[in-house]
């Protein structure tokens, strides 16, 4: 096990604590969870130009974001405080926020915009600007958005806010003013301590996300989603949507060709044939 301690944030933000305390002995923790709305991982994707054809696609909260949200809800239940979910995306992304509210998030901010035309740094600038307006002790992301899979936005937000960051986290303990996170490495586990506010990106295994409760779904209906534009956050659209990274093309992988069957009636002959295939055709040996 490797233990490390990270330096405090470059510039902190006052943690105005207003929410009721779940446990009077605990200091409430306010969390911000950034979520993204992605096509269901079981969807059959159709390419349209340089992007995907969204018609008929089912969108879901990106699966790794679910671990981040669950961690924040558990903190709220144990210590009190708010869980604010933030997304940057088109109108349909509001469904992702409703889903998070139904699981137990307490507030939601929707920055509207065509996220597909912004690159990772553009998205990170928008989220960082939105987060600055929310009281928070910890900012959580999924380790990557399933879709773009760049795993860039969380770390970029941490840099923009000047916060310590711990990525691909499988275990999290939040104390007073500091947190401790575990991350799995090849053959070992790192334990990192950081002062708060800090950015955490969640890996599968951090927890077991809950199902939305029916009561949560009904309660979510009563929470107003705070809708903002990029301009409302004091950002220039030209900066956000001016991609430094440009998609040149998007193509589906080639159709899989059918496998080759080798008659196994004579095992020795079959083995020779497989070996021949591996050497001469696949050239793997």
């Amino acid at each position: 096990m490797i233990a490390r301690r990270l330096a405090p944030p470059v510039h902190g933000i006052s943690n105005a604590v207003s929410a009721a305390r779940a446990n009077p002995l605990e200091v409430p923790v306010n969390s911000v969870v950034c979520v993204t709305h992605v096509p269901d991982t079981e969807s059959r994707i159709k390419v349209s130009g340089r992007g995907i054809d969204e018609a008929g696609l089912k969108f879901i909260v990106s699966p790794y974001d679910e671990y981040a949200l669950e961690a924040a809800i558990r903190l709220k239940e144990a210590k009190g405080g708010d869980v604010t979910v933030v997304t940057f995306g088109p109108d349909r992304a509001a469904h992702a926020l409703r889903e998070c509210l139904a699981r137990g998030a307490t507030k939601a901010i929707h920055v509207k915009g065509d996220v597909a035309t912004a690159d990772s740094l553009g998205v990170a600038k928008v989220l960082a600007a939105a987060i600055k307006g929310i009281p928070h002790d910890i900012v959580l992301f999924g380790k990557q958005g399933v879709g773009g899979d760049n795993a860039l936005v969380g770390p970029m937000v941490a840099e923009l806010l000047g916060y310590p960051q711990i990525n691909v986290v499988t275990h999290l303990e939040v104390g007073e003013g500091t947190l401790k996170a575990h991350r799995e490495l090849e053959g070992s586990e790192e334990v990192i301590e950081a002062p708060m506010p800090a950015v955490i990106t969640a890996q599968k295994g951090l927890n077991e996300p809950r199902y939305s409760s029916l009561k949560g779904i009904m309660a979510a209906k009563k929470v107003a989603v705070d809708t903002k534009s990029v301009a409302d956050l004091g950002l220039s659209e030209a900066d956000i949507f001016n991609q430094r990274v440009v998609y040149v093309s998007l193509e589906l992988p080639a159709e899989k060709s059918g496998g080759r069957k080798i008659d196994g009636a004579d095992p020795a002959a079959a083995a020779r044939e497989i070996l021949k295939y591996i050497r001469e055709e696949a050239k793997a040996l």
Binding site: E99, A102, I217, M218, A220
Partner: peptide, 14 residues
């Protein structure tokens, strides 16, 4: 309604 679909989805996942 959106709530009805959310209720269905959560039970469907379950």
């Amino acid at each position: 309604t959106e709530e009805e679909l959310m209720v269905r989805q959560t039970v469907r996942d379950f």
